[in-house]
């Protein structure tokens, strides 16, 4: 099991509060099709996606996803961050692309 603090370095910024840095996950699922996440995401997996929308938070709430990594330096508005904080979901932002995050996580032993 990993937590958000283990991800964070110069490439990853946690947008949500300090409490969310304790959120844990086991494995990741990457997709930009949220219905695909509904179909495939497993319990305790983190979601890696390009979609920085309210729908991403709603989906995370439905599937009990506690960690979301927003890739490709997508703009994340404050309303999204506020809602993630309220729902105790960690939002991480990175300039890396999806495949680069997965390679990075693998090389660092996170997945």
């Amino acid at each position: 099991m990993c937590n958000v603090e283990m991800i964070l370095n110069d490439n990853y910024i946690c947008l949500t509060n300090n409490q969310s840095k304790k959120n844990q996950f086991h494995g990741v699922y990457a997709t930009d099709l949220l219905s695909s996440a509904i179909k495939h995401v497993k319990h305790q997996e983190a979601l890696i996606t390009l979609i920085a929308s309210q729908t991403t938070i709603s989906l995370a709430m439905m599937l009990d996803i506690h960690v979301i990594v927003i890739v490709d330096d997508q703009e994340v508005d404050q309303k999204l961050i506020d809602r993630a904080n309220k729902e105790e979901i960690a939002l991480i932002k990175t300039k890396l692309l999806t495949h680069e995050v997965i390679i990075d996580f693998y090389q660092r032993g996170i997945i």
């Binding site: 930009d32 099709l33 949220l34 219905s35 695909s36 509904i38 179909k39 996606t49 979609i51 929308s53 729908t55 991403t56 989906l59």
Partner: peptide, 17 residues
């Protein structure tokens, strides 16, 4: 699509679940 939906999986997901 920008909101992450419209991939044509909704009804089939609902049927499966």
């Amino acid at each position: 699509h920008m909101n992450g939906f419209g991939a044509g999986m909704g009804l089939s997901n609902m049927k499966r679940l």
